[in-house]
Amino acid sequence: MLKIMKQSIFKIKENIALTDSIFKMVLLGDTSDLRTGQFVNIKLDGFFLRRPISVCDVDKKSLTIIYKIVGEGTEQMSKMTAGEKLDLLTGLGNGYDLTLAGKKNLLVGGGVGIPPLYKLAKDLKGNCTVVLGFNTATEIFYEDEFKALGANVIITTIDGTKGVKGLATDVLKDIDYDYFFACGPEPMLKAVYEQTKTSGQLSFEERMGCGFGACMGCTCKTITGYKRICVEGPVLVKEELVW
């Protein structure tokens, strides 16, 4: 499997708010050798550890990340402006294995787990059903972007302010699919694991030290052995999970 980590400087092209706490940042730099579902690890001035963030979209010159303000680091990121530079490690993690995809693919995303599914939907040429789960209508982002790819998009909100009331996993039983991809908070992933009847791939999140396999900070147990979320993950196939 292609695995090329690079350290390079990216320039911010834009950094805009999608909701109150979710931001989209487009970065210009070396985007060669990136795989869908991988992440980047970002060095921020004044912070010791890098911030691992999944890649939402990639083209020849730029990559897009969508991140939520969850602490002081991401808050500082949200205040950065076009033209500022960031030190990134790119090409991290295994990414999705598209050779395993089915004919009728289901993508399930929750909150900031949604971004990496966008490039995946693009790779699938929009030929997929996408379930996007949010807490409430004001937190919804990228609905139109997924629709523009031609995907069949289903929105769920926990409070019912838009789309189907409930969790993303509540609508799965009514969808016809033969393979799935999921990314979101761990309780959502566990519900997807329990409620899906086909094989699929799930993308995980964990606190990381390095992001490239050296510190062993993000290890999890699988039936095929211990795996580092940052190297053997973040994408794990359903059959190897211990749940």
């Binding site: 010791f48 550890l49 606190r207 147990k221």
Partner: peptide, 23 residues
Amino acid sequence: RFGNPTPRIAECESGMINAIGLQ
């Protein structure tokens, strides 16, 4: 050895804490 449960990492000013547990 698997080591300790996660989270095993915490950030600090000019440093970090790890509790890998000899994985």
